[in-house]
Each structure stands twice: as C-alpha cells, then as structure tokens.
Amino acid sequence: MCLGVPGRVVSVEGLVATVDFWGVRRAVRLELVDEPVQAGDYVLNHVGFAIRRIPEEDIQGTLDLYESLLRGDGDLMAADVRAELEANPEQSPDA
C-alpha cells in the first residue's frame, strides 16, 4: 500500500534532510522520524517524509534472518531441498 523507498542522508538542515536515492536527491522532512538522523544515516522515505531511521546493523540483521531460513535453522526447510541446494553450489546461499 505505501511506496517506501530507502535513501542515504547527505545533509541535514533543521527538520529537512537532503537524501540521496542513488541517482536523484530530494528534500525529505524529518518531523516524523523516530530517532535523530545525521549525514550518512539511512532513512525510509514515504511521500517526502522520513518515517524510520534504518540502523545499518538491522540491514545486515534482516539478511542474516533470511540466511537462517535457507540454512534450515528451526527446520524451516526440508532436508531434501537442502541437499539439492548443496548439490548446486552456484545457487547456494553462500556462493
């Protein structure tokens, strides 16, 4: 429902940040963001407002969560699929 796009803060002036979306920059308002942001931070933008400062460690955290799904921690994946993945190293999650 809501088009949220992550970007990186280039500079902050009061309650307005200039955010780089890897190709275009745009002013993003900071009234709504949950934590103070500074240059270099990642934010989630929706309709010109930052609604979340994305902590860098959480980006890696999400990726790790998916890795754990594929590793089968908590038996999320049947053993035969894991075997199949191991037999195709070019498609394995750690390739």
Binding site: L69, L70, M77, D80, L85, E90, Q91, S92, P93, A95
Partner: peptide, 27 residues
C-alpha cells in the same frame, strides 16, 4: 557504490530468490 545501495540489491538477488522459492515450494 558500497553501502545501502548494494545492500538493497542484496534483497533483489535472483539466485537467493530462487533458493527461497524452492524453500517455499518445499514448505
């Protein structure tokens, strides 16, 4: 460039998507 861009692209990695697709089918 390094940073969130390449990380964002990691969430669009077709090879990993195929792996997850197979995990989904298995489940």
């Amino acid at each position: 460039p390094e940073g969130a861009d390449s990380r964002q692209l990691k969430f669009r990695d077709p090879a990993r998507a195929r792996d997850l697709g197979r995990a989904l089918t298995a489940a």
